[in-house]
Simulated scan of single mutants.
Amino acid sequence: MRFLNEWQPRVLSLLRIVSALIFLLHGTQKLLGIPPKSFEVAAFSLSWFAGVIELVCGALILVGFMTRPAAFLASGSMAFAYWIGHAPRGLFPTVNGGDAAILYCFIFLYIVFAGPGPWSLDAKRNPKA
C-alpha cells in the first residue's frame, strides 16, 4: 500500500494529462479539422463554443496551467453538453451517447478539488499549492 500511496500524486498527473489530451482532440477536431471530421461546425454555434472550451481548457489542463479554473469550466461544459445534447435522446448514457460527457464532467470536477498533481506548470510555479 505504501508504494501505491507514494505514486498517487504522479498518477493524478497522468489522469489529468491523458484526460486533457483526449478532451483537447475533441476541440481540434471541431475547430481545426484535426483529426479529419465528417461534420461541419458553424461559427458561434453551441458546438463551436464547446470546441473553444475543449481546445483552450484542454490545453491548459494538459500542461497543468491554471488547472483548477480550466477544469471547472471544462466540467461545467460537459454537464451542460450532457443535459442539452444527450439526455433528451434517452435515459441511459450508453444509449444516448453521453457516457464520455459524464466521465469528462466528473474527472474534471475531481481535478478541481485534487489539483493538477506534481507534473504540472502550476506545481512548478507554486510548489506548496
Rank of each mutant, 00 (worst) to 15 (best):
14 L>K: 05
105 C>N: 02
40 E>H: 12
9 P>E: 12
28 T>A: 08
78 M>A: 07
114 A>W: 08
110 Y>L: 07
26 H>D: 03
52 V>L: 13
91 L>R: 14
55 L>T: 04
93 P>I: 15
61 I>V: 13
74 A>Y: 01
87 A>G: 05
90 G>A: 06
46 L>M: 09
68 R>K: 14
13 S>T: 15
26 H>P: 00
68 R>G: 03
1 M>G: 05
3 F>L: 11
87 A>P: 02
104 Y>S: 00
104 Y>N: 01
111 I>H: 01
127 P>F: 01
4 L>W: 13
70 A>H: 04
16 R>L: 09
4 L>K: 06
70 A>P: 00
116 P>Q: 11
61 I>L: 12
126 N>A: 09
101 A>C: 07
2 R>P: 00
125 R>N: 12
10 R>Q: 02
59 A>E: 08
18 V>D: 07
3 F>D: 15
129 A>M: 09
36 P>V: 02
108 F>L: 10
32 L>Q: 02
100 A>S: 09
1 M>D: 10
92 F>T: 06
110 Y>V: 01
118 P>A: 08
82 Y>Q: 06
7 W>A: 14
60 L>E: 02
99 D>P: 01
99 D>L: 15
63 V>Q: 02
24 L>I: 04
42 A>N: 07
116 P>T: 12
24 L>D: 04
4 L>C: 11
64 G>I: 03
81 A>S: 13
23 F>H: 07
117 G>Q: 03
16 R>D: 06
84 I>T: 12
108 F>S: 03
119 W>F: 12
66 M>S: 14
105 C>G: 04
42 A>P: 10
102 I>T: 00
47 S>M: 10
3 F>Y: 13
120 S>W: 00
